[in-house]
Each structure stands twice: as structure tokens, then as C-alpha cells.
Design a protein around this nucleic acid. Structure first.
Lengths: 240, 240
DNA sequence: TATCACCTATAGCAACGCTATATGAAGTAA
DNA sequence: TTACTTCATATAGCGTTGCTATAGGTGATA
């Protein structure tokens, strides 16, 4: 159907695969779909890319770098930990934009395909953390820190991908990101943007009361009052 | 080949699926393998389980509970945060013991299969964290804490699964676990009081919140709202 | 005995990833 | 030009996958 002008078949396959993967909303994409959209036949795909996974890896090579290290989305600020946050957010964005590709890369178990990609992402994270370590901002080895942060990043991304886009709550990402970063960094960053650890005792007390009320007998309060009451407690508890 | 004695076909299918999944080292398991090992034909599988995923979910129902909540592997200690650590470790162990099943549950994107399982694991984690919140050990809402911890748990488990068993470094798990737990907990673990659950804890929490509110007026509540709020707090403290 | 619901088998469909083989196009050497 | 080589694409189809339309067998109940 679509022959994409004068592009050679290899490029058309890459473009078709990327397009289908981006729009497939999580459902698997078949080689037949790809070759039809690219206007070529099956042997062409296997001639250029070996197999389906080879094609997907080629797409990833084009797309992943763009998000993780591409100039458009990432420019080192000189502040290593800020760069780590940027890498985290780019990683998440890539996963949400390309759920199908992402699951191939990180949700997969097969040891022959996953480690190469993971190692690449890990190496990039580690690179930043080495700078942080050189600046005395790390309290663990950069490699261990990179692995921990990347693991949490993958878990958060998979969890958010699995949710309907409308219900996604990015507090999960921010909160977890700050948790793992602050755990590996030597100084308590008072930057404030993340999760203020020494949050006001009001929040702690509100959360405790909220939980206590829900676990005790709510009959003591009239239902309408209780609803408003819990709503306010909830609002207080979420100001963090 | 193997008819497993007198077990009914449904049980044979479950057993065959579990066995193949456990030994398949990450490679996909086909319905034909399963039905052949169980000594039944395809329609039997679909009659009992609907589809392949239904069978896998049934296997998970048997196996997952065993690790996450089973009596043999989990007994609440009364210290909520210690229980959370136990849940984390059980979760990881389950993933490493059943990599294929685990990837179906958590590494998968399809929104129709994943949320049910995730919600179950999340609910269990949340249950523990509510107790922690009631004891004043949490600085965020239990639900948010549960999601963050579970996300990190999933990420760590997938990363360790993808590594050769010999090279697995469990420091990654311990480190990340403590990072997310400490991020959601109010640093003062007052666990000396044990687990105060019931009306009395409501009073204690209400008094604490009352005092905290009066000393720091949060801008989230209008003054009239604040007055009513404090009045109700007062009533709770007296009627319980 | 007759009925009926439940369970299982025969046989096969459509879609999948992939390939053995052949054909065309393009460059090189004589 | 002609012959040879090489790369790239097409025709056609293999073996496997998840799944099902249909029918037959089996045991409990009336």
C-alpha cells in the first residue's frame, strides 16, 4: 500500500516497523503487517535483519538513543544528579511512547536479547554517576547505584505502561526516582523538588489518623461527615 | 506420555503447565506441549481455562499466593515494615524460581491481563503499609507507598532474572528495597508501641493531628474549613 | 430406560515466523 | 558486446502456533 516514495526497502522496513510498534497499543505486531506496510515481501526483511528481533533491535538502535542520549532530549547540565533525573525521565518517556518496543527490551526474560540493551542503558546511567562520585556526591559505587536506579526505573515504567493512559499518576515516578537517588547520594539534598523527607508532622499525623480511622469502626461517625472528613485528610496527606 | 495416575484432566493440565513453565528456562511454552504432557487434547484445555493465558493465570493462582502470602513463607511479625521487607523478599524469590510465569505477570504489557495480578500483589503490600501508617511510620499515603515499593520490586526482580544465576548480586535487591522503604517511612520508627490498632489509636492520632494543625496552619484548608475540621477532631477525641 | 448436562476427542482453520529456491538488476572483466 | 559474479527482491510454501466447530462419550438423575 504505502511505498514511502523513493526510500530503499531497508529504510521502509525500519519506518514501517517503528510506526506499527508505536501505534499498536501493546498488542503484538506481525512481520506480515510490517512487510505489507513497507511494500516488500518477507524474504527482504530476513535478508536485511536476520529475524524479527533483529528488525526490532534496529528500530531500537534508532529510537532508544534518541530518548536516552539524543541531543534533542538530553544535554548534560554539569550537575550529575540532575542529569540522572533527566535520564530517568527520558527513559520513562521512551517506555510510554513505545510500550511494545519497551517490553521487548526490558520486560523480556530471554538472556540473549535483554542484557545487551540493558547494559547499554546501564552504562549510560553509570557514566553520569561516575561524575557524581568524582564530585563526592555518592555513597555507593557508581555501578551499584546505576543498577539500582535503572531497576527501579524499569519497574516504574512497566507499571505505568500497564495503566490506562488517563489514570497514570506520575507521582509514582517522581517519588520512586527521588527514593533511589537519595539512597545512593551522600548528602541530603534539600532541593525540595522531590520528596521532602522531613515533611511536616501534619502530614504524618494526617496519614496516621486516616489509616487509623479506616481500620477502626467507622460507624462512630455519621457517614456524610465521615466522607468529608476523610476527603480533607486525604487532601492534607497528598500535599507532599 | 504421562497421565499422572488418576488425577482429573484439569489438575493434570495445571501440573503439566507448571512443570513446563518451571523448566523452560525462559523460552515460550506451547499449548501443544502442555496438552501432550497432560495426556489430553486441545479442547479440554480451552474448556477448563478459556485460553492459554487463563491456564497460566490458574497456575499463578496456585503458585503466587504460596510465595506472597502462604503460611509457609510469611507470618506477620506485628512489625509492619519488617513484614514489608518479607513481602519484598518473597516476591523476588518467586520471580527467580518462576521466571517464565513472572514475565507473564509483570513483564507483560497487555492491560487486560496484568492489572489483575498486579492489583493483587499491590493490595497485599498496601495492607501491610496501612498498619504501618496506623502506627505513624509512614510519611506518604499507603497506596502510593505500596505502588512505589512494588514497582521497584518488579524492576529489581526482572533485572536479576535476566542475569545468569551465578552472577546475581542480591545487594541490588537489599539496597533498592531499603531505599524505597526509607523514602516512604517517617524516619522515627516508633515501633516500641507495637501495633496500636483500634479506637485508642484514633484518639492518639487525632490529638496529634489537632496539635500539629494548630501549630502550623496549612494553606490547603480555608479557615472556616479548618474550624469545622478542628471541631470534628475534637469530637472524635471525646467520643471514642 | 430415557434424558440431560458435562466433559473430551476428531479434525482443521487462520495467522504466525521463517526459508528453499528462483528471478531480476547492477557492476566487472574479457 | 558477452559472460560472470554479486547483491536484492519475489514466489510459494513449510512447520508451528493459538484456538474452535462439531460431534461423541459418560455418568447422574428422573
Amino acid at each position: 500500500m504505502n511505498f514511502d516514495g523513493q526510500l530503499p526497502p531497508k529504510a521502509r522496513l525500519l519506518k514501517a516497523a517503528a510506526e506499527l510498534l508505536a501505534n499498536s497499543a501493546g498488542k503484538p505486531v506481525s512481520t506480515r503487517q510490517i512487510t505489507e506496510l513497507a511494500g516488500v515481501t518477507a524474504p527482504t526483511l530476513y535478508h536485511h535483519f536476520g529475524d524479527k528481533e533483529g528488525l526490532f533491535n534496529a528500530v531500537i538502535d534508532v529510537g532508544f538513543e534518541e530518548y536516552v542520549a539524543g541531543e534533542h532530549n538530553f544535554a548534560p547540565t554539569g550537575k550529575p544528579l540532575a542529569d540522572v533525573r533527566q535520564i530517568w525521565d527520558n527513559h520513562l518517556k521512551f517506555g510510554l511512547d513505545n510500550p511494545q518496543l519497551y517490553s521487548v527490551m526490558f520486560g523480556n526474560i530471554r538472556p540473549e536479547s535483554r542484557p545487551a540493551r540493558v547494559a547499554e542503558a546501564e552504562g549510560f546511567m553509570e557514566e553520569m554517576l561516575e561524575k557524581a562520585a568524582a564530585a563526592g556526591q555518592l555513597c555507593v559505587a557508581p555501578q551499584e547505584a546505576a543498577r539500582s536506579i535503572l531497576a527501579a526505573n524499569v519497574g516504574v515504567t512497566l507499571m505505568l505502561i500497564a495503566e490506562p493512559a488517563a489514570e497514570r499518576n506520575f507521582d509514582l515516578s517522581d517519588m520512586t526516582r527521588e527514593a533511589v537517588i537519595s539512597a545512593v547520594s551522600s548528602e541530603a539534598e534539600l532541593s525540595g523538588a522531590g520528596a521532602p523527607v522531613g515533611a511536616s508532622s501534619v502530614v504524618v499525623a494526617a496519614i496516621a489518623l486516616n489509616a487509623a480511622l479506616e481500620s477502626s469502626h467507622p460507624e462512630q461517625l455519621s457517614t456524610t461527615e465521615l466522607k468529608m472528613f476523610l476527603e480533607w485528610l486525604d487532601r492534607i496527606a497528598k500535599t507532599s
